[in-house]
Simulated scan of single mutants.
Amino acid sequence: MRRAAVGTFGREQKSKLSGELSSFYKIGKIMKKVLFKSVPFNKEHITLALESGVDAIIVAAGDVKKVESLARCTVIAEEAMPVIVFDSKKDEEEATARLAKGENVAIARGWEIIPIENLLAQSDNVTVEVATLAEAKLAAGILERGVNAVVVLPEGVEELKQIVAELKLSQGTLDLVSATVTSVQNVGLGHRVCVDTMSVLKTGQGMLVGNSSAFTFLVNAETERNEYVAARPFRINAGAVHAYAVMPGDRTTYLEELASGDEVLIVNHDGSTSLATIGRCKTEVRPMLLIKAKVGGVEGAVFLQNAETIRVVRKDGSPVSVVVLKEGDEILVRTDAAGRHFGMRIQEEIKEG
């Protein structure tokens, strides 16, 4: 069993850092926390980790101030995150007991799946060491929910960016289906919301938006250029203020409630997902269209601005402008069970139109 000695690391500082770490565990279903351990201290590795977007840096107590001088970030002394090597059942039992007490511990690299499953059955605060993307993905998928955090060791620095992208940005895959457009109608003026993200999106990427949480349309980002307007690939002209938007963590929200700093779910035409942070939202009165589409016997609707730059997505991933959309066209949507309360999934008889 291996533990770092507390040494000169003060109780007050240890308590502060431990408290910061515990807040990491309030996370969604899929997104995990990624910590990078730089012991011994390596400034180049730490700079790369900070640029990659890790949630915290773990260093020796004497190096905490060095990291704090590089960026505004969470720095954890390794003494506040003791490491337990699983050599026997007793080590697993000790980890279980310490986690039950609210302590922050990491399971040393070399862990096996069954002991981690046992920990996950009893704790929501399981953290493991990894050194490769494959190990990180394995840890994130154990029991279909995975550990809450991984500590990437120095030998994993070359794959660190990929690990962050997989565990922090990817939100898994959603099932999109092809729906048949049944009508496109002019419906007058309404307030619509432009979601300007801090990310450059690609053709076939956007947000899922709709009148009902059970039937949402893939609205393409403004990735396409035309002779009148330049592309704005950071923007999704997402629809009317009342519409539902599918969010990270299996939640929904009204478009009107989105604000700067919020994370939104970006969905690709193949169903893969990622996160983007909102830089700003613009709500303005514009002429609107009511678009309806049907999957099987289920029909859904969405209100989108009547303009050439607003596009939904065909089943082959190509965007199609709403001004040329017509009855019979095939576009991508997501169907789901209805029933949300403050954005959270609930079991309730409900009809939305």
Rank of each mutant, 00 (worst) to 15 (best):
E135N: 04
A77Q: 00
P40F: 07
V83T: 15
I142S: 04
A134W: 03
C73A: 13
K101N: 09
K33F: 00
G156W: 12
L119C: 01
K33M: 09
C73Y: 02
N118D: 14
A56Y: 01
V39M: 03
E112D: 12
I58F: 00
E159A: 11
K137R: 15
G146T: 02
Q122T: 14
V150Q: 06
G62T: 14
R109D: 15
I30G: 11
I142D: 04
K43P: 04
S88Y: 00
L120S: 08
E135A: 12
F86M: 11
V151M: 13
G102Q: 09
N118W: 09
L133V: 04
L119I: 08
E103K: 09
L153C: 01
L99T: 06
V164S: 02
G141R: 05
W111G: 05
I76F: 07
E93I: 12
I30P: 07
S52P: 13
E166I: 00
M81I: 15
V67W: 02
K161V: 13
D91N: 14
E112I: 13
I107Q: 04
A71C: 15
E92Y: 06
A97C: 09
G146F: 07
A100V: 01
A108I: 06
V34E: 07
L133E: 06
E94C: 08
K90H: 06
T74I: 12
H45W: 11
F86T: 01
M31P: 08
T96D: 11
S52D: 12
E78R: 06
G62N: 14
G146Q: 02
E94M: 15
E129I: 08
E44N: 13
S88M: 05
L70G: 05
V126Q: 08
A95T: 11
V147T: 05
D87K: 15
N118V: 08
D55I: 05
I107H: 03
V164Q: 00
P115Q: 02
E155T: 13
V75K: 00
L119R: 07
K66Y: 11
M31T: 15
G141W: 04
D63W: 02
E92M: 09
A56G: 14
T74V: 14
Q162I: 00
V147R: 06
E155R: 15
K66V: 14
T132V: 09
M81S: 10
G156P: 10
K66A: 14
I46A: 03
W111C: 02
E159W: 03
A108W: 05
Q122Y: 06
P82G: 04
D55L: 04
E159Y: 09
V151S: 03
V147I: 05
S38M: 08
D63G: 11
L167S: 10
V130P: 01
V157A: 13
I84G: 05
V39F: 03
A61I: 03
V83A: 07
L48Y: 08
D91A: 08
L48W: 05
V130A: 02
V34F: 01
I116G: 00
K37N: 03
T127P: 00
P154D: 11
A139V: 07
A95C: 03
S38V: 08
D63M: 07
E112Q: 14
G141T: 04
A106T: 13
K33P: 01
G102K: 09
T74K: 08
A165T: 04
A136I: 11
L119D: 08
E94N: 07
E44C: 07
E93Q: 12
